[in-house]
Design a protein around this nucleic acid. Structure first.
Lengths: 334, 334
DNA sequence: CTGAAAGCGCTAACAA
DNA sequence: TTGTTAGCGCTTTCAG
């Protein structure tokens, strides 16, 4: 008998205890219509005496909605997704929705089943899946709707993306204004589309305006990669380096420091992302800040409008914000 | 009519399409008992034709379990919780469980209702709630069971904690071995229990062994705080500084560098946490690494054993791992 | 304003 | 092996 105390009471028990019907209990618990104050009182008393709280699973089944959404990401250790997660979690939470989270650990082959499985437990999906083949995504999208895509576009599906090209453009304009005419790009992982975006933007800018010469150095995404190419950067004759991201820029900074090359005296360096540490390097890193948290919040707003039956339709590109700090300066001749 | 295509098919539709009963469909979908191959074939065909996948909500209600667990944390931007989240998500995922995540944003007053609400949607809870009053936690715990606590102990509830005192002990032993006899502690936030743990350990060590003198400096948890006290550290006459965490140590490092104080030549510095950047400061930071990911994995194992009906009962303390790097060295006279 | 009853979609005894 | 049937706990018409 005592064991029953462990399992939480259900609506029937409360109804009997309060001497009313289950419908009335339901109404009271949901603050519905006007139940006679006296009855409401009794129901509330019974509920609290029995430690009753409605089963969300049963409500979900009856209502046809779960008040839960899912976020699917390849890798939770990526600061990008961490911040999207936070923004999404907070925004959805403020509207009384819970967040289910699924990580594919970069196993693209699992992503599809992961996403579908998650979708069956909730009302909508925010999907960040940089590597899923487009054909698969097209097939998947309708089954996941309501759906919001992160950093990936697909006709007919709302999507929120970072405008890496615009960020690069701002960084280059900044460097040009400081007199730099020979710029080296410390390239990220070749497979990364965000590296592709940056590189394409740089190529276009150097070719269109003919205002500067672009040199490429294969690098990577980590501190160590930036550190390793410091010598090459110094020898390149460039007066400025645009790094794939802040980690790489930081590594290059550190390597150049060891080589006795002064930044920004002899060479300027820019990062990308504005990770928390960018402000604290020596010198502090000029970078382009991606509004990751905002991306998460907007993802919820987009999803909510779909849940509310509005077409939503709102895709958006988020322009990174240029942050000028100490790692960039005028060229000697500038 | 076409609109019906949007809503996913249910078991009844599939049963009719395959000319079998719903029970048979259920059996096939769950790979249960031996259904005649021919029937199974028909069911599968019908299911795929109708794009059918079982409603997880309905299953959850019928089965009395959701195959979902919840993680409740005060702040997702805290690297500690991010890594616990990852470990937990991966471990639970490998066992076919999903993760619901709820963030209280440090609003302690919301944590209780947040936790209860989350619990109603899943099978168990991992709770990191450093500030919830013990009395509240005691009342809450039975309602959240199966429950695992992170960095917090409560009689009768399995809990996984970081042994900060042991980490401090290792750091101090390291400093003592280098000849340091006058150590300044850059204290974290006074309200933080993890600061309390570190301080208590330091006080005990300095009093018990009488091997070194302890100085305290009020500081904080951020880079800026460490940076601000650099002058005081230099003036304290201490030959070594134990910082509350890596961020503070990094700030102090930076401040001392600006003051022309050499590390570890004139003063040694230790951090705590081994954040990713600790390896990249100049000089690299001696620190104590907290096995955060492991904490998350173990939390799942603990929870799973409770879900399996085993008493679990396993609480554990995780000893940080001492990482000796360049920021600590012998004293001049040592 | 309240209660009876029919679902929501699936699972699991129990029979056949 | 397969189907029938009774739930899981809640919501919501529809009567009264």
């Amino acid at each position: 008998m005592d064991q029953n105390a462990r399992v939480s009471a259900n609506i029937k028990l409360v109804a009997e205890a309060a001497g009313v019907s289950r419908a009335t209990v339901s109404r009271v618990m949901n603050g519905r219509s006007t139940v006679a104050p006296e009855l409401a009182e009794r129901v509330l008393a019974a509920a609290s005496a029995l430690d009753y709280a409605p089963s969300q699973v049963a409500r979900s089944l009856a209502l046809g909605r779960t008040s839960t959404i899912a976020l699917i990401v390849p890798d939770l250790s990526n600061p990008m997704f961490q911040d999207v997660l936070r923004g999404l979690s907070q925004a959805a939470g403020e509207d009384g929705h819970r967040l289910l989270i699924a990580e594919s650990n970069e196993h693209v082959e699992d992503e599809e089943v992961l996403a579908l499985e998650a979708r069956r437990r909730c009302d909508g999906v925010v999907l960040a899946s940089p590597r899923l083949p487009t054909a698969d995504l097209e097939r998947l999208a309708p089954q996941l709707a309501p759906l919001v895509l992160i950093n990936r576009k697909l006709p007919g599906v709302p999507s929120l993306s970072v405008d890496y090209a615009a960020g690069i453009q701002d960084l280059v304009a900044h460097l040009l204004s400081l007199g730099h005419r020979r710029i080296v790009y410390l390239a990220g992982p070749p497979a990364s589309t965000s590296n592709r975006d940056r590189l394409d933007a740089l190529l276009r800018l150097s070719q269109e305006g003919r205002e500067f010469e672009l040199i490429q150095v294969a690098c990577g995404a980590m501190f160590e990669n930036g550190h390793a190419v410091a010598g090459g950067v110094a020898a390149s004759g460039a007066t400025a380096a645009v790094a794939y991201n802040d980690m790489v820029a930081f590594g290059a900074l550190s390597g150049l420091h060891e080589l006795g090359v002064s930044v920004p005296g002899q060479i300027s360096i820019t990062g990308f992302d504005d990770i928390p540490f960018a402000r604290f390097t020596t010198p502090p890193l000029t970078s382009a800040a991606v509004p990751r948290n905002t991306l998460g919040r907007r993802a919820w707003e987009q999803l909510r409008s779909q849940l509310d039956g509005h077409d939503g339709g709102g895709s958006a590109d988020f322009r990174p914000r240029l942050l000028v700090r100490g790692s960039t300066g005028r060229t000697a001749e500038g």
